[in-house]
Design a protein around this nucleic acid. Structure first.
Lengths: 341, 341
DNA sequence: ACGCCAACTGCCAACGTTGAAAAGCGGCGA
DNA sequence: TCGCCGCTTTTCAACGTTGGCAGTTGGCGT
């Protein structure tokens, strides 16, 4: 049984009593096949467990059914969620997923991508930050006319289809919640200004605080780069300030930096949240795993990725210009801002 | 320039003044091409920036240059590291990587994989636990004669090529270190017995303790399932024991459970490592991110994945029976077992 | 009953590559 | 000089699919 050669369109056609071309039409859901014929063919496909040969399809029709995720983002959680979302959509739609993985330091990214797109006509590409903003890569994909969707691009947002989270909304919810808890002395650990998300989050923080009557001038602002170490470093600077300037809450622009914040506070014998409360952003796995667990903003990367993949594979509305999807976020309250500790 | 159609073997041949078939030989590094011809052809390839069409190759020669990673492991760190390792090797060898991602709950795994392997002849597949031990999938891949390498398979180790870490060595190093620190009252939080790694780690723990004259009967053993919550739960059980039985050290069989251990100790007001020290296993990202950072065993998943990929793509020694690679591990000492806190 | 149109189906060729086998070439011994 | 051998190169066809087009069928209006 495993010895026999794989069934082809011709085999199916022979069994169903039609030409291979007709089977092809059925397989591709093309119009112009009578219901009766379609049923016969479907039955034969079922009987032979026929599956179209990917290579032959790709060669003949110049459509590869391969969706590429292009990534140089070092955060495993983020990437895993993107893969999960895209993977699900690919399976639904009969596509396959290929992953082009780079280190942040890699300087041959364009070269590797060129190799891929020159070798086969991709069904499309999904770009993850910070690679979303590499002009050379965008140029390359455009030159090859590869459909692409970018996730949270920082620059040139209208250049391609894109998916975003409503980061600003999340920050506003968070700040309002903290204000209601009684916090008035805020410290913010921002992310790298090269990331769109950092800039948006920071602007939303100061905006929301101002709206509550808290002058940005009284807010301690430190700069990080989204890494754990930078969060720890920023916290040391905050703790070195005169004691009366010490904040009651430190808001980090992502969870990883918040973990760094908490570790330094812990090492300094400062109770969290008793003396200083802490918040993160993203609701990544770590938010749940550290102690105390982090109050944070959840953005479902899986859903964003699914939306991106669907956008990518649905070419029907492309001609109307770049499309844009915005994803809701959600405030997740955990112990790191609890009042009763 | 981007308008022109992509160069083919014929174009290269025309430019070099040879037949397409000869160019094919050069591209594939086959023998029987004179040095002079090879040089001419290489120059023409360079000039046209020719890249062989993947689909045509796959169709004609039944070799797809696609390496699949089959995964239903929920740990993003682990998977990300595997992807990194395999990705690097693929790039080196001119292959591409496709990822078949499943949730642990997925019960149509075999179906999806069948779809893939029926659609195209994979260059090979790399299997990640716990999917490594799904007999139906192994059968399926074997029936299709797809080369495969399994990473840390739990069962039937000799059935395929495989890559392992020397977990036992790591546990012995760890236990000896803890003994030297003065620990005598051990608690162990084991992993699910369905995982090979759990069983090996547990056996190594009791073995190493016995070797040091500590009777396994005096060791508190709790069962977890590698999740954070199970680590927390096990710790609550440990803390509910009579006070004089309380251990001085809790060794978890992975980092994630160790994080759960630490969170419960923290919530219970027990100083780590002052009153109870904690260790993990794997040196995943979390080990560095929690407070206090975890003493753990590092196994380089990236290197294991690289080794697996090389094994997969090197078919030269296959006939000598299943091949096996064992990877060294390393003790990483951090604050969670520090004496001076 | 006839003609015509639309719907459906079948045939042929081609996508770019490589397996198989034939053809070309150069050197060397007889 | 001829013939043969071995290495290199070319020719031809085929992989399984789909685009283009031609052919067939059935239905419907007159």
């Amino acid at each position: 049984m495993s010895k026999e050669t794989k069934p082809t369109l011709h085999d199916v056609g022979a069994l169903a009593g039609v030409a291979a071309r007709t089977v092809s039409r059925v397989v591709n859901g093309e119009t112009g096949v009578s219901v009766k014929t379609r049923e016969k063919v479907d039955k034969a496909i079922e009987a032979l467990k026929f599956r179209p040969n990917l290579a032959a399809r790709a060669l003949r029709s110049d459509r590869s059914f391969l969706v590429a995720i292009l990534n140089n983002n070092p955060s495993p959680h983020y990437v895993a969620d993107v893969v999960r979302g895209v993977s699900r959509v690919c399976r639904e739609t009969g596509n396959f997923l290929t992953l082009e993985e780079f280190t942040p330091a890699d300087n041959n990214i364009a070269e590797s991508i060129a190799e891929l797109v020159d070798s086969i006509r991709l069904a499309g590409a999904i770009l993850i930050p910070p690679l979303t903003d590499d002009a050379a890569i965008l140029d390359l994909l455009e030159a090859h006319e590869i459909p692409m969707v970018r996730m949270s691009p920082a620059s040139d947002a209208a250049r391609t289809d894109a998916v975003f989270a409503r980061d600003g909304d999340g920050v506003r919810q968070l700040v309002n919640h903290l204000y209601q808890l009684g916090h008035r002395r805020f410290a913010i650990v921002g992310g790298p200004s090269s990331h769109r998300s950092s800039r948006i989050r920071m602007a939303a923080f100061t905006g929301a605080l101002t709206a509550l009557g808290i002058s940005p001038a009284t807010v301690i602002i430190e700069q990080g780069d989204y890494t754990y170490d930078s969060g720890a470093e920023a916290t040391r600077r905050i703790l070195s300030l005169p004691h009366k300037m010490r904040p009651s809450i430190i808001c980090a622009a992502n969870d990883e930096m918040a973990a760094g914040v908490i570790s330094v506070l812990g090492a300094s014998g400062i109770a969290v949240p008793g003396e200083i409360a802490v918040t993160g952003f993203d609701d990544s796995e770590i938010a749940r795993l550290i102690w105390p667990p982090l109050t944070t903003i959840r953005q479902s990367i899986v859903e964003q990725a699914e939306a991106a993949a669907r956008l990518l594979l649905d070419r029907s509305s492309v001609k109307d210009g770049p499309r844009r999807i915005e994803q809701e976020v959600e405030l997740v309250i955990r112990k790191s801002t609890s009042r009763d500790i």
